[in-house]
């Protein structure tokens, strides 16, 4: 791999994870806030809310993981390595 390609790949890998974490971060914050509000309003529904919250958090987490997969491909299986 020539140095420009490897430098670009490393920067791109960092950006992929870093930028990919912003959106899900905001989304998870909103979801957790909503869940806390729901529990405060209706403490007896805590179990159900927790289950739904965990499931939806994992869905949002998947978005960051896509960024991570791209980063891992760039680092370990770079198609442009030549």
């Amino acid at each position: 791999m020539d140095s420009i390609t490897s430098a670009a790949s490393v920067v791109a890998a960092g950006l992929a994870v870093g930028l990919g974490a912003i959106g899900p971060g905001i989304g998870q914050g909103t979801a957790a806030g909503g869940a806390v509000e729901g529990i405060a309003r209706q403490p007896e529904a805590e179990g159900k809310i927790r289950g739904t919250l965990l499931l939806s958090l994992a869905f949002m987490e998947a978005l960051t993981i896509y960024g991570l997969v791209v980063a891992l491909v760039l680092l370990f299986a770079n198609p442009f390595a030549g």
Binding site: E61, A62, I65, Y66, L68, V69, L72
Partner: peptide, 16 residues
Amino acid sequence: LSLSFRLFGNILADEL
């Protein structure tokens, strides 16, 4: 695509 990447990425990320 999303099913496979989600599972693969999460497990590999944990291991890493």
